[in-house]
Nucleic acid binder design. Structure first.
Length: 783
RNA sequence: GGACCUAUAGUCUAGUGGUAGGAUACUGCCUUCACAUGGCAGAGGCUUCAGUUCAAUUCUGAGUAGGUCCACCA
């Protein structure tokens, strides 16, 4: 065995092996292998900037550990890297970086710019993130969400859904972000709390009397289409069916009765406008009220709002309140805590705007989707409930069209004459309808078409990620063999989007589940427990950590985190990781110095050897049991406890008197046991700390084992456990601790020789461990 | 309003129907013999109440606190 340096140079070791793995294609998928395939539907990181904080490191490393573990469990691992460079984030990134808006240039020019920028970011990510952390991707399998194969899959998916009657176009009020000026899906709307004012406004009745109506959105007065009261509200029953005059605008609207009105809220009278909020929309739909639209796509008021036309919503609100006050129509104002739906990207409150959009039928399949969800193994399992809650509560079909530039084009044209849509033939996909014309004439006979301007919702592509990674269209045989894929790792915030849409698509296309298992990972919070982000200024950057700690130490920290729990980031966890690495190095160094030539055949083992080998077997069993359930942190803890508290603290001390001594048989038994135990320990640590274990493997084992890398080895089958050896070993450890305490109390070094020692209590089988204890603690006589 | 998760030393974390294990920080002792980025030792802890039980930190119920999702939000 070769010797190890006194101190390891972490950075040098890391760079060396990162290069080696790349050059040797250590993690390449082997399509010819007969091993069972384990495929991972990797989450694509947004290539929209270079903000890499420890949260990303955690998220991506958590399942990267799994890929390494599965490889060593004997699977043929299919682990593709990927980037999401599609959709809004990229578009916004480019707009911000160049200080432009997308309308400043042509669509194709803008898209080129987006691709260029995304490409730069991807390179940066790869080098400074995935490779710097030693991630075991097969880079040949790289995909991005905007590349032509992904576009083809997304478009093919749409064409298939259209043919099956699951995709339809309709004009109706949709959730609208005035900032991004696009329609949004329900999943893209989040709640935000804010303070606002409740305004008590006077409306005038037909008899000239005034009544108060409370509203948070007086700017919507011009869109008022009715006033509602509860049918049992005695204050107002006499008004039902009569008319009421809207202040400032002085038009009359009817007064209706409806159960949904809360008598306690406000004055008990509710004004309904098209569309101030969900409740308005609901009543409009149910009661077929008229529609008065007073806002445009930018969130400005239209001509229908009279003198307020052209103002933005919040300006209009201020102006209306001013006028109400000036004319004595404002009874009073109250502070109010309000929750509003906002765009998840820009926090702009969403509005309702009727527009023509494409939808995918979703509401009709709620029951089936929940059934599909139950066929999938969720880790941890309680997240399945969240999927079901979301599915049960869905109120809208999925809007798949977006009014953006950068994204996958929708393969649709519209007849200029009759307006009928023509969907591209599956054979010509991917297609940009701006660049290609339909081959067929419209059924009305016209050959003149208008291309669809909208692009797909980014989830239209992402929801097909299992199909994309295993090449649904390019390699149908492979697809058949590998679908559903093995594992989807993802974070919990996108269960309602990514997980949901992926399950939906697999069902609509194949009546199947997309993956067998889902692994939901955590958020890293800052040390005070808040979410980490660049904008909050509390992010801890990976770059800074990598300057201070080794990649393996960071990976070690990841392996301490349990699934399903968000955790605040604590730097002290990295200190522990660094210590474990040093301990592993030093113990290996000690073994290398003492091991000499390893006997080829199994020698006659002594009691301490049998003890540590039995314990090793027990550890191997539970390590595998936990890892198979993705309980990486439990597996790691069991392994680490064994390595520290039994292997280093006791076994290595137990064999010193034998390796330094003259009894060759005893020495060889110790060497044989050391050699085997350390190798298995290294293998179990290998997925967690790949650089350090590879370095030690190279120095100590490469010559005796054929494998070029520890990472392509498999875990050995655990030996049978010798129960007696375990009991005796435990007793020996207990007695050794007792003698250590004695030496400590008497201010003796641990290596000091003792003439005699009297045990507190002699165990039953003392004879079997007497020599071991005496030798280890250097005591001549034990009574 | 409904649902889910969590509650263990200053901090982080394991575990159990019967004396709660470890890390980190703190204190003390120990440097020829792998390791001071070390070894050994010390001090310090089960959210509250009720129930089941010979016995509850563990099981059951309720409460409290924190986190999360959904609904409501005129």
């Amino acid at each position: 065995m070769a010797e190890l340096d006194r101190k390891p140079d972490f950075k040098k070791i890391e760079e060396k092996w990162q290069k080696y793995w790349e050059k040797n294609k250590t993690y390449q998928f082997d399509p010819k292998s007969k091993k069972e395939i384990f495929s991972i539907d990797t989450p694509p990181p947004y290539a929209s900037g270079d903000h890499l904080h420890v949260g990303h490191a955690l998220h991506y490393t958590q399942f990267e550990l799994v890929s390494r573990y599965k490889r060593m469990r004997g699977f043929n691992v299919y682990f593709p890297p990927c980037f999401d460079n599609n959709g809004l984030p990229t578009e916004k990134y480019v707009e911000e970086k160049y200080k432009i808006t997308k309308t400043d240039m042509s669509r194709s020019k803008f898209r080129k710019l987006c691709r260029k920028e995304a490409g730069k970011v991807e390179k940066n990510y790869t080098k400074r993130f995935f490779k710097a952390l030693g991630h075991a991707y097969d880079w040949n399998l790289l995909y991005t969400t905007i590349d032509s194969e992904s576009q083809k899959v997304a478009q093919t998916s749409f064409v298939d859904l259209y043919k099956k009657g699951y995709a339809y176009r309709a004009e109706e009020p949709v959730l609208w972000c005035p900032h991004h000026q696009t329609a949004l899906a329900q999943a893209e709307v989040e709640d935000a709390k804010r303070k606002t004012k409740m305004n008590w406004v006077y409306f005038e009745l037909e008899n000239g009397k005034k009544v108060e109506i409370a509203t948070t959105r007086p700017e919507f007065l011009p869109a008022c289409v009715g006033v509602f009261a509860h049918p049992e509200d005695k204050r107002y029953t006499h008004l039902i069916g009569k008319k009421i005059k809207v202040p400032i605008f002085n038009f009359w609207v009817p007064i209706f009765a409806d159960d949904s009105v809360d008598m306690e809220f406000g004055s008990g009278l509710m004004m309904v406008c098209t569309f101030g909020d969900n409740a308005d929309l609901e009543k409009w739909r149910r009661l077929k009220l008229p529609m008065k639209i007073i806002i445009d796509k930018e969130g400005k008021l239209t001509k229908a709002a009279g003198k307020y036309a052209g103002l933005k919503l919040n300006q209009a609100k201020a102006a209306v309140i001013d006028d109400l006050e000036g004319w004595g129509l404002l009874a009073r104002q109250e502070d109010l805590e309000q929750t509003v739906g906002v765009c998840w990207r820009c926090n702009t409150p969403i509005e309702f705007l009727p527009t023509k959009q494409w939808f995918v039928k979703t509401l009709a399949f709620k029951k089936e989707l929940i059934k599909q969800g139950r066929k999938i193994d969720w880790h941890p399992k309680f997240y399945r409930k969240r999927f079901e809650d979301w599915t049960n509560n869905l109120g809208w079909d999925w809007i798949i069209s977006r009014q953006r530039y950068y994204g996958v084009p929708m393969p649709i044209w519209y007849c200029k004459k009759c307006g009928k849509e023509q969907i591209a033939d599956a054979k010509i996909l991917p297609v940009d309808p701006f660049e290609v014309k339909p081959t067929k004439k419209c059924s009305c006979g016209s050959g003149q078409f208008e291309p669809e301007k909208d692009v797909f919702d980014t989830w239209m592509t992402s929801s097909m990620s299992p199909e994309i990674i295993i090449k649904w269209l390019k390699k149908p045989d492979q697809f058949k063999k590998m679908f559903p894929v093995s594992l989807r790792p993802q974070s919990h915030d996108i269960i309602r989007t990514w997980a949901f849409y992926t399950i939906l698509k697999a069902y609509l296309h194949f009546k199947d589940i997309p993956w067998k298992e889902v692994m939901i990972s955590n958020y890293v919070l800052d040390p005070k427990g808040r979410g980490m982000s660049k904008s909050k200024g509390n992010a801890i950057w990976l770059k800074d950590l990598l300057e201070k700690y080794s990649a393996d130490a960071i990976r070690y920290w990841v392996s301490t985190v349990s699934l399903g729990k968000d955790m605040p980031f604590k730097e002290q966890e990295l200190v522990r990781g660094s210590k474990v690495l040093i301990k592993l190095w030093n113990s290996s160094r000690f073994i290398a110095m003492n091991i000499g030539k390893v006997p080829k055949t199994k020698p006659q083992l002594e009691i301490s050897d049998k003890w540590i080998l039995s314990r090793l077997a027990e550890i191997q069993n539970s390590y595998i049991k936990h890892s198979d359930r993705y309980e990486i942190s439990q597996a790691r803890r069991i392994l680490e406890d064994f390595f520290y508290a039994e292997f280093c603290d006791f076994y290595l001390e137990m064999i010193k008197y034998r390796t330094y001594g003259t009894d060759q048989k005893s020495k060889q038994a110790a060497q044989w046991t050391l050699n085997k135990t350390l190798l298995e320990i290294l293998k179990m640590f290998a997925p967690l700390i790949p650089h350090m274990t590879e370095e030690i493997y190279e120095k100590l084992y490469k010559r005796q084992i054929k494998s070029k890398s520890i990472h392509t080895l498999q875990f050995s089958k655990p030996d049978k456990v010798d129960a007696e050896a375990i009991t005796l070993g435990k007793q020996a450890c207990k007695i050794i601790s007792e003698i250590r305490q004695h030496k400590q109390k008497n201010q003796l070094g641990m290596g000091a020789e003792l003439e005699s020692y009297k045990l507190k209590r002699k165990p039953k089988d003392w004879k079997k461990i007497e020599a071991l204890v005496k030798g280890t603690m250097r005591v001549r006589q034990i009574k």
